[in-house]
Design a protein around this nucleic acid. Structure first.
Lengths: 221, 221
DNA sequence: GGATTTTTTTAGACTTATCTAAATTTTAAT
DNA sequence: ATTAAAATTTAGATAAGTCTAAAAAAATCC
């Protein structure tokens, strides 16, 4: 249907506009994709021609409903393949991104739906990101940034904001994988470092940068 | 490492030369790939430049050891993915070719080796074709063409020579799937039609064309 | 064994996706 | 409200992979 390149642009636009509904700029896309702004402009014209985006020269782009649907299905495929790689083939959560980046371009709706069923219709991928269902619906979840917790609060790690292998491996070292139960023991105003209790045993100092990149779900007290 | 297109050419050359060791002609490749002879010539130059083939103008091509190794690994990936699709995702044997055609280009040696282990190191794919191991070694098997059997001989269906969905679906209808046990009851010289007993119960007339496209393993008497 | 047919290669063109450099538009600043 | 800076687009080139039509080489046929 669409080339891998076109699909990658759609995904980039989707991810850049998922938070804010504002149009995405040419430069933002070129940075995220490591291409020149000129290449992006060329591609935007093609995508607009195919009715995947709304493009106004010099004003940025938004996805059309077809474009958003296509991007959502790419995200679905990417995340389902990540679940497969981690849960079935026992890859670590920091190893799967590149492979999923290729697998997401495999063309077969039947395949992705069967994979979904095979995996038990998972709602979240190995990094805690929500997996859209066959209709494109995401599961929402009450979550906050770890560093926003107050001293004494308990929470469970449910996701990460950063996905670099370095960060994920560091979290492994800190035993802060998904599902980890933590309690804030101390908060240092000097630089935002926190002292965490990690259940059932263990204690760690985590930097503000780490705390800013972890999503947690507060525990009822 | 190599583009999907380059890989497809290597696979075509491999398959065209796997029986005979003779050089493969430009026309043979263009027919198999549904491209013009001119396109093939262009690509052969590129593949020769990359030391994947030995190319002599007007004389056809053979694979270098690098080329053969690359093609073998593609066949390995293709067939392992077919096993996954059929055994894990419950696709029928006539539905998996196109998907495997895409999946075979996923770049990750670790992935294919883990998939191999996950599937239990299968030696044959859902069509009975041998799957090369991580070293590129194929498993050989004593097999003959069904129509070469004599009246009274018993055998087990172990593979197919033709892979079209039409043929495979027809075999399903005849209950001549892999593993089926058959005995030749009659052989009509008129057009080569055979009357088969299919164990445990069942009897079918099969045309010569069908019989020519099925591999069987003779049963000791 | 020379003429004809078939096969293969070359020449020139097109598409997709990319780039750099130059031109244009928008934004920000004084 | 100009002007300077930043962002974006256009122009022109390149590489991969494809095509058709024409030229060249190889194979085949009396």
């Amino acid at each position: 249907m669409f080339s891998s390149t076109e699909e990658n642009y759609l995904k980039a636009i989707f991810n850049l506009s998922v938070r804010t509904k504002n149009p995405v700029s040419t430069n933002a896309i070129s940075q995220r994709m490591n291409t020149s702004a000129a290449s992006v402009t060329d591609m935007l014209k093609r995508l607009a021609e195919k009715d995947l985006i709304n493009y106004v020269k010099y004003k940025g782009v938004t996805l059309t409903s077809t474009g958003r649907k296509t991007a959502t299905m790419l995200v679905r495929k990417h995340r389902l393949w990540e679940v497969f790689l981690v849960e079935q083939l026992n890859f670590a959560w920091d190893e799967v991104h590149e492979m999923a980046e290729q697998l997401e371009h495999i063309q077969s709706e039947e395949l992705v739906n069967r994979l979904d069923r095979y995996l038990g219709y998972p709602k979240f991928d190995p990094h805690g990101d929500p997996i859209p269902d066959a209709n494109g619906q995401f599961t929402y979840r009450q979550q906050v940034i770890l560093s926003e917790l107050e001293v004494g609060e308990e929470a469970i790690v449910v996701g990460v904001k950063e996905h670099s292998p370095e960060f994920l491996q560091f979290l492994d070292r800190l035993h802060l994988q998904l599902g980890a139960q933590v309690m804030i023991q101390e908060h240092f105003d000097y630089d935002g470092t926190m002292r965490l209790k990690i259940f059932p045993e263990g204690e760690q100092l985590v930097s503000n940068k780490v705390g800013q990149n972890i999503y947690v779900q507060k525990k009822e007290k």
